[in-house]
Each structure stands twice: as C-alpha cells, then as structure tokens.
Amino acid sequence: MDIVSTLRVNRTERPFTADTRTTLLDALREQLDLTGTKKGCDQGACGACTVLLDGKRVLSCLSLAAQCEGREVTTIEGLARDGKLHPVQAAFIRHDGFQCGYCTPGQIMSAVALLKEGRAGSDEEIREFMSGNLCRCGAYPNIVAAIREVARLGSESQ
C-alpha cells in the first residue's frame, strides 16, 4: 500500500511516495537520494543509520517513513553549512576517526547528539554513550579523541 507523504529533511520539505512498509532509512536512501545514511544491520543493532529526529538521535532503520511525517529529520548531508564542515566532521578527519568510512555518518550524527546531550564529560562517558555505534575498523580511540577535542573547544569558547 502506497502512501504519499512529506518529510522535512535537512530543513527542506521533501514529498515522496512510498510503501507503508518503507523505513525512514530506505526512504532517505532509495527515494530521496540521501545515501549518506548507511544500512549496517537494518535491525537496530549497529547505529550506522543514526539520524536526528526533532533533534534527537534515533535509528532510521526501525522507524517507518510514514511515522516521521511533519517531523524534522537531520542527516549527515545536512550537517555542514555553507560548505563548511561541522566541527565534529572536521575533528573526525583530524583524529582519523574512521577508516572505511561506512559507519562514519552514523558515528558523527551520534556524536553531534552526544555533545548536545552533555555527555562528553570524560572519556569513559563518551565511550559509553557512543557504544550504540559499531565500528568494525576499530577507530574507537580516535573517535573518542575527536569528540573529546570538540567538547573541549566548545567549552572553551563559551
């Protein structure tokens, strides 16, 4: 059964037609050409599909696209503004917080949310609250370093 709906993605209204069974993840990737959000398990067990929904990090593989009508979706493509990388994106490059890069969009979305949640107080806290994002390349220590740096710079600038 098809539904005609509109998603508000990265500050833009995006109408789409999809199956009622279509997940937010598949709608982004297959309908809206936003392939930055990745499918790593499609079962809520890896975090690669993490997006922000109304500012909170969620898994797009376990959300129906239809459920998200009228809500604000932010994906990795919506993070950089005016061609300038988000500080978390820049820190991931500086600290080599990825290798293959496949989990990276999910890691970065999760890290952006984590900073907003105020959970970057210590390395231990960062590790725990980034544990919903698997990285098979094992870039975890570098991911922690990147987040630590952004957290420190953020608190210094305040």
Partner: peptide, 9 residues
Amino acid sequence: GASPQLRNM
C-alpha cells in the same frame, strides 16, 4: 539498556 538511539525511540 540498549543504546542512546534506541532509548530515544
């Protein structure tokens, strides 16, 4: 329990 993402859902 779970992960922050799942706990938001």
